[in-house]
Amino acid sequence: MRIVIALGGNAMTAPDGGARVEDQLAAIGAAAEPIADLVLAGHEVLLTHGNGPQVGNLLRKNELAATVVPPIPLDWCDASTQATIGVTILDALDDALGARGSDRRTTVLVSRTLVDRDDPGFAHPTKPIGRYLTRDEAEPLIDHGQEFVEIAGRGWRRVVASPEPRECLDAAAADTLLAAGYVVVCSGGGGIPTQRTADGRLEGVEAVIDKDLTAALVAGHIGADLLVIATDVATVIRGYQTPTQQPIGTLTAPAMRELAAREAFAAGSMGPKVEAITRFAERGGIGVITSLDRITDAVTGTAGTRVVPAG
């Protein structure tokens, strides 16, 4: 099969969320093991990943240096972390594949995701990023054109647009590399947010794109059979934290739409994941949410919450 695997933040950091270099190396090394098994089983694999903690580290550096050097734009932060995380994944995969006697090739694409210039998110940014600051700490960043809101009792926090992903601009390159036998890392962090100007040029834009929605988009672009979103739980839970909670197994896309409307999965966590696998199933594929250690079982159909096409 051709499989897209979206690695969540837990696959990139320590269990406590730590994003030190050694934390990331250890976590990504562990994540590479089941992926290498899938590659050796004959599957074509494209990986995408989150980058929240890593971008957070860069934003912290922006804050500390704002009075000395101009802040690095958010699209540049995305590009930087795509490259850093991508190369780290490649090294870990090369080690895991080599230990299994394979010389399968790996590569990373620093890749862009197209968004609409007229997306309503740009008019009313609501996606909070970074840490809470005092007014004095936020002032130099506001002077550089960043938008902050005050949260009563907590401080000032930056907000940016979170536009809908429309097209993975480098999916054709990923498709070509997959066909040539590469394991590909692509569209990390939802892709570098990019818009088309009035005169047709492409340019980066300050925004955050949901990585799971982009994963569903790139999976459709490359004709994937299966989209696996690897997170820190084995399945999606119906009635979460209630006496009647229960795991969700396999549902059709229309059934998951109905369930999601009733459950109102959290917008900052499970909601986008459910939306992503549902969208992919509506396009004819199979979408799965499961934990990293159950990826192999998810591919064989014995683990995770699965959404399949209607009929």
Rank of each mutant, 00 (worst) to 15 (best):
M1A: 13
I5W: 04
L7W: 03
G8V: 05
A11T: 01
T13W: 05
D16P: 01
G17S: 09
A31Q: 06
A32E: 08
E33W: 04
A36H: 06
L38I: 06
L40H: 01
A41D: 15
T48M: 07
G50K: 06
P53S: 05
P53H: 07
G56W: 04
K61P: 00
E63W: 03
L64H: 08
A65V: 10
A65F: 14
A66H: 04
P70G: 02
P73Y: 12
L74M: 10
W76G: 01
D78M: 11
S80M: 15
S80N: 09
S80E: 15
T84S: 13
G86Y: 02
L90D: 14
D91Q: 14
D91T: 13
L97C: 10
G98Q: 08
R117P: 00
P120L: 09
G121L: 02
F122A: 08
A123V: 07
H124R: 13
T126S: 05
T126H: 08
R131D: 14
D136K: 13
E139I: 00
L141N: 02
I142R: 09
D143R: 15
D143V: 09
Q146L: 15
F148L: 03
A152R: 11
R158H: 06
V160T: 01
P163H: 09
R166C: 07
A171R: 08
A172C: 00
A174M: 10
D175L: 12
L178A: 09
G181E: 08
G189A: 13
I192Y: 03
P193Q: 09
R196H: 03
D199W: 00
R201F: 00
L202H: 10
V205I: 15
V205L: 07
V205A: 08
I209N: 06
K211L: 12
A215W: 11
A216F: 03
V218G: 10
H221I: 03
H221P: 00
I222C: 07
L227S: 05
V228P: 03
V228F: 06
V228K: 06
I229L: 15
A230T: 00
V233H: 01
G239Q: 04
T244A: 13
Q246Y: 00
L251P: 00
T252W: 11
A253W: 06
P254M: 11
A255M: 08
R257T: 12
L259Y: 12
L259K: 05
L259V: 06
A260G: 04
A261T: 11
A264Y: 05
K273T: 08
V274S: 10
V274F: 13
E275F: 02
A276E: 10
A276C: 11
A276I: 12
A276M: 12
F280G: 08
F280Y: 12
A281P: 01
G284W: 06
V288Y: 04
S291I: 02
T300A: 13
T302L: 06
R306V: 11
V308W: 03
P309D: 10
G311T: 02
